[in-house]
Design a protein around this nucleic acid. Structure first.
Length: 176
DNA sequence: TGTCGGATCGTG
DNA sequence: ACGATCCGACAC
């Protein structure tokens, strides 16, 4: 069963300067190694001991830039996606967020280091439609990175599609 | 070898 | 507001 989502929300992490990034200061450890790989590489890690989080390395190779995928709108295999979330489709008590998204898509750390641009890959990133007009995108500060301090905590590097309900922390899918 | 805390989330 | 849950990073 193949599932797909349209990405609706992201956050940018711009090491080496960005204190919020795991690769801050070009820190190179087994975990951060993939940050330095080619753009299009997946970085998947365990957060709070519970949630798997997925990033796309944006490179260029050797430059640890990455984008956290925070939310997506189901576009293929919607029912399967909902089932994997373990949430009742008829009563969509849906919240959203990076941990829920990976669970819904079956993404875990075994996919860390995957080449997302490989058409034959188990997981892929595709460009399908025309570019989204920038006027449809809202930018806000990133979530959950208070430890990074100023100015990083204030950088408007969280981006989401305005008016799209499949976005985290808006309560759009809480039961009415 | 030990400690500390986190790019979250659902419940209370 | 809080607990779950585990492992990476760094101190000792």
């Amino acid at each position: 069963m193949e599932t797909a989502v349209r990405i609706t929300e992201t956050e940018a992490y711009r090491a080496p300067e960005d204190r919020a990034s795991h690769a801050y200061g070009n820190k190179r450890t087994p975990r951060t190694e993939v940050f330095f790989h080619a753009p299009g590489t997946a970085y998947v890690y365990l957060c709070y001991g519970i949630h798997e989080m997925m990033n796309v390395v944006t490179g260029p190779a050797g430059t640890p830039h990455a984008v956290l995928i925070r939310a997506g709108e189901p576009s293929r295999g919607t029912e399967f996606i909902m089932a994997r979330r373990k949430i009742n489709t008829l009563h969509p008590r849906l919240t959203s967020g990076p941990g829920v998204l990976t669970k819904a898509l079956g993404i875990d750390r075994s996919l860390n280091g995957s080449n997302l641009l490989d058409p034959a890959g188990k997981i892929r990133l595709e460009v399908t439609g025309p570019p989204v007009d920038s006027s449809a995108i809202t930018a806000t500060p990133r979530i959950g990175i208070d430890y990074a301090g100023a100015p990083w905590v204030n950088k408007p590097w969280r981006f989401y599609l305005r008016d799209n309900p499949f976005v985290s922390r808006l309560g759009a899918f809480k039961e009415t």
